[in-house]
Amino acid sequence: MPHLPEPRGELSSAVTDLLGAAPGPVPAIDVAAPADPLGDDDLHLALYVLYELHYRGFDGVDERWEWDPGLLGLRARLEAVFEDGLRAALSGWTPPPADATTMDLALRAIDDADDAPSLSRFLETKGTLEHYREFLVHRSAYQLKEADPHSWAIPRLSGPPKAELLEVQFDEYGGGDPARVHAQLFADAMVALELDATYGAHLDRLPGVTLATVNLMSLFGLHRRWRGAIVGHLALFEMTSSIPNGRYARGLRRLGRRSKAATAFFDEHVTADAIHENVAAVDLAGGLVRREPALVGDVLLGARALAELEGRWARHLLGAWEAGHSSLRASEAEAVAA
């Protein structure tokens, strides 16, 4: 089980201090909106740690904290800051027209309008092994629990959309074969690139802009009222996966990393997500809106929010690399050395 991370400010200090003790009263904690509610280190680490109680937990943390009303109250206040930030960032966005039969077109329009720089093109053609390692470390926050945030939606759906979601998730979890669980394939790729693939091992090095991409899925997944958004998030995630993963795999081979362990995760996603994107956009997202037409706006918002946060994340990585430094937070060793 992972250790609690080092705090990065008042909010994450308050959360890690609380979790270090047995469940008890949660004091009133002042939650002010930071300058960047979509990437703030302290806010997103605090939120990430609180969400993680619902996934794998932390070493030495009392598991009763997961449903502690006081702590959930604090989480709700952090979520409100994150949600307000999302709505502000998307305030100038006009959703494309959509109904149950045109959901695939509307989601594609969101992807087409995305002007974020392409991380996959960079890695395919120019990425070094060190860039790849950083990329995997960032992604490990989600990929080592791949599909779990979207699985929260399963009990919230009924009928055909539920079956379509399970169709996708069944593949994500290896079709019943533990060796082919996508999170395991990702761990194999990390090890093949000489990285520690232990769950949570790199949390201290992940900036807020990375943690926010995972917090987005947890926010949408853990709240039934956001079931449309988690479905839209999954649909666009699948729709923007095949082509980039093909590029990631080609870049690894260009760097001489041709072993199955290094490339299987990416190769698997090329063909698997070529299936999933259709199932997720047409049958799952379209099917959900057929049953619950009022959710159309949330489905599109979930997709657009994904594009927004992934774009910020990609800009962060490419910006750091172009400036010639690491996109990760300094490790304890480096901080001491500096």
Binding site: E167, I243, G246, V270, T271, A274, I275
Partner: peptide, 25 residues
């Protein structure tokens, strides 16, 4: 590998007969 498969319809896949998403590009 999967219970459901996607077969290339555009002719541009590098993984024929399977789809690899190239139709979008």
């Amino acid at each position: 590998q999967q219970r459901t498969i996607a077969l290339c319809r555009c002719g541009r896949s590098r993984r024929k007969p399977f789809c690899d998403g190239t139709h979008k590009v």
